[in-house]
């Protein structure tokens, strides 16, 4: 008996150690990314970083006099692209999520919408970008819009919206499904029309999930590079109109990071660091919001 006990204890300890080791191994790449970004990106951060636009390329021979520049235009570009896309995707996604959860649970149409939404969350973002590009091109070739719209802030916003909406829709649907039916029935039993019950009670009860969904979608959109390559296009300048190309942070990282030009590379690292910090911030905000809502409502006995 005692031998069995000891063997069990050894096995326990061995498994715990193995699991712990796996965690360490999994964390190594993450740690190295954070470290590199912090070290390299830290070099670039300074007041100019946030206020100046992307500098023109600088030849290596003139390195000493290269203007460092900043990411002001890229920051502005990302804000505009993601901001406006959010303004469109959020209501669209929430309404779709509401439909899927409240009206379309059993209907064939609902099942269809759900399927399409699921598929769309999985489409590689480059594909989305190419398709939007192609559509805009076709429409421009047909003469309905000027050609310059094909790579512009507008097409960039459209691409991001297409990426974000399914995410919001699915997350909202899941969040609303978690609201117990009895809450819905209690609201209906008070003699309220269904749509009002959904908006005021169900949505409010599931708002933790809705907020999480929104933040997730925003985080995803902020980091998307591929679709923006073929739609927004990138630029050295600030916002010049919805029919013009526009800069964006991920684009900056992609183009500058691979350019080999030292000041560009530094700029790219700085942008990467800023993006990581933004992502961290959004994750934290989502977690905090969830925690606060759960603390208030979930502490029921």
């Amino acid at each position: 008996m005692r031998k069995q006990g000891r063997r069990r204890r050894i096995t326990n300890a061995a498994m715990s150690a193995a699991a712990f080791a796996c965690v360490i191994i999994a964390l190594v790449p993450l740690a190295s990314i954070l470290y590199s970004a912090a070290v390299e990106g830290g070099k670039a951060i300074g007041p100019a970083f946030f206020t100046q636009n992307e500098p023109p390329p600088c030849s290596p021979t003139l390195q000493a006099n290269c203007p460092t520049g900043g990411i002001a235009n890229a920051l502005q570009g990302t804000l505009i692209l993601v901001g406006i896309a959010t303004l469109i995707a959020l209501p669209l996604g929430i309404l779709t999520g509401i439909y899927l959860s409240e009206y379309g649970r059993l209907s064939r149409f609902g099942a269809g919408v759900r399927f399409v939404t699921d598929v769309m969350t999985g489409i590689p973002s480059i594909v989305v970008g190419i398709v939007i590009f192609a559509i805009f091109l076709l429409v421009a070739q047909a003469g309905w819009i000027p050609l310059r719209y094909v790579t512009s802030a507008t097409s960039g916003i459209v691409a991001l919206t297409v990426i974000m909406t399914p995410i919001v829709a699915r997350t909202v649907e899941e969040a609303l499904r978690l609201v117990p039916t009895t809450i819905r029935e209690a609201a209906l039993a008070l003699g309220i029309p269904r749509w009002r019950a959904i908006l005021r009670i169900v949505l409010s009860t599931g708002k933790a999930g809705v907020v999480t969904g929104a933040l997730l979608a925003v985080a995803r959109a902020s980091g998307e590079t591929a679709p923006l390559i073929v739609t927004a296009g990138g630029s050295f300048f600030g916002f010049a109109g919805f029919d013009q190309s526009i800069a964006a942070m991920p684009l900056l990282i992609y183009v500058n990071g691979l350019s080999g030009v030292p000041n560009y590379v530094t700029l790219a690292w700085g942008t990467a660091l800023v993006l990581i910090l933004i992502m961290l911030g959004i994750s934290l905000a989502a977690r905090l919001a969830l925690h606060r809502v759960l603390k208030g409502a979930g502490a029921a006995r």
């Binding site: 809450i183 209690a186 039993a189």
Partner: peptide
């Protein structure tokens, strides 16, 4: 109709928020 006929359910269900 539902406003005129009130209902209380088996498991208490106050609105959580």
């Amino acid at each position: 109709v539902r406003r005129r006929i009130g209902m209380v359910f088996q498991k208490p269900n106050p609105f959580p928020t």
